[in-house]
């Protein structure tokens, strides 16, 4: 019974778009799945103490090249996407290798990554001839115009994107599971606690950290590519920079970065929250969401450090509150 539960849920998620679901909800679901993938990628680092405040950098560097290659050379996103993901991974090496090699850890690592997100955003804005700067850019419509173009990955029907996003998100969860069941997980836990002791038993600290960073960068880049392709609109402020970087952090912490579904639950909460704020306050109270995010983040870090989902899982698995097992349960 319990074994089949995940498959049942996946089957249910797969048929959702074929039920009469209002388009707006389908739209939200797509955004949640994509942000869920990105936050899952972020948490793969975050849960091992590699707190990045610059994942927006991996987003921007992945999605813009893909869109530019399409607009200028007509290169299909099926090729543009791997190039974009490759560039995100390359950026991961560029920032990760020196940082890990020279033992930049904790707050200092967070600060370096903070700069990373902004550098990418400012670069995109600076290249406004090409990227449209702060005004953003639109991928060209495929010619001749059709409703379904697999070549251009442009669909008027949202259900196509839903299925693509669902597959990518499941791929992200699968990556999470692979990591969790590998020796790399133990190694990264050990490294997050004590790098000197980890190295003394033969663990190559730099390469372990680098590998998880590259996986995280790739997942984030892929998520960004899907966001840009789905929205058919790219904006440096929403696909790079501090704002989106912090949103990823916020969602992951609120949902719970130590559990497989936590980051996705966090993405769901943030997206639903952002949408309802917009519905109630309209555009009059810009900055309201960020303020409330900040406040909630502090409250969560103090009172629910394992996030909402981490809390639920721990309670559900061990209602008696045996904390030592609780920790373990929440990690798996």
């Amino acid at each position: 019974m319990k074994r089949w539960l995940p498959y049942g849920c996946i089957a249910l998620l797969a048929v959702v778009p074929f039920a009469p679901v209002p388009l707006y909800y389908l739209h939200l679901a797509i955004l949640i799945l994509i942000m869920g993938l990105i936050c899952t990628g972020w948490s793969l680092m975050g849960k091992f103490g590699l707190v990045s405040l610059g994942h927006g950098g991996f987003m921007g560097i992945a999605v813009y090249p893909m869109a530019l290659l399409w607009n200028h050379y007509g290169l299909t996103p099926w090729l543009g996407a791997p190039i974009g993901v490759g560039l995100a991974v390359l950026l991961g090496v560029l920032i990760g290798y020196p940082a890990f090699r020279f033992r930049v850890v904790g707050h200092y690592f967070a600060l370096i990554t903070l700069a990373l997100g902004e550098v990418v955003r400012l670069s995109i804005i600076a290249a406004r001839e090409l990227t449209g700067g702060s005004l953003g850019m639109t991928p060209l419509r495929v010619q001749p115009i059709t409703d379904v173009s697999w070549y251009a990955v442009q669909f008027t029907d949202k259900r196509y994107f839903y299925v693509i996003a669902l597959v990518a998100w499941l791929g992200g969860l699968w990556a999470w599971r692979l990591v969790n069941r590998s020796m790399a997980r133990s190694a990264l836990e050990a490294i997050s606690e004590d790098e000197v002791a980890a190295a003394s038993v033969g663990i190559h600290v730099t390469s372990q950290k680098l590998r998880i960073t590259l996986l995280s960068a790739a997942m984030t880049g892929l998520g960004a590519i899907m966001l840009g392709q789905y929205n058919q609109y790219l904006n440096p402020n929403s696909l790079s920079g501090i704002s989106i970087s912090l949103e990823i952090v916020f969602a992951s912490i609120v949902g719970g970065m130590y559990t497989m579904l936590g980051p996705t639950i966090g993405a769901l909460i943030t997206i639903v929250f952002r949408e309802s704020l917009r519905a109630y306050f309209g555009a009059t109270l810009t900055g309201m969401a960020e303020t409330i995010y900040g406040l909630l983040l502090i409250l969560f870090i103090i009172f629910m450090p394992r996030g909402l989902w981490g809390f639920v899982v721990a309670r559900f698995a061990h209602p008696t509150g045996d904390t030592s097992r609780l920790e373990v349960a929440a990690t798996r």
Partner: peptide, 25 residues
């Protein structure tokens, strides 16, 4: 280490399996 440096997030067995696995390249 003079002052023990166990990996507290791992179980006793995991501590040693980890060392055995990575200690021999």
């Amino acid at each position: 280490f003079q002052i023990p440096r166990p990996f507290k997030k791992l179980s006793l067995l995991e501590n040693v399996v980890l060392s055995a696995y990575f200690g021999d390249d």
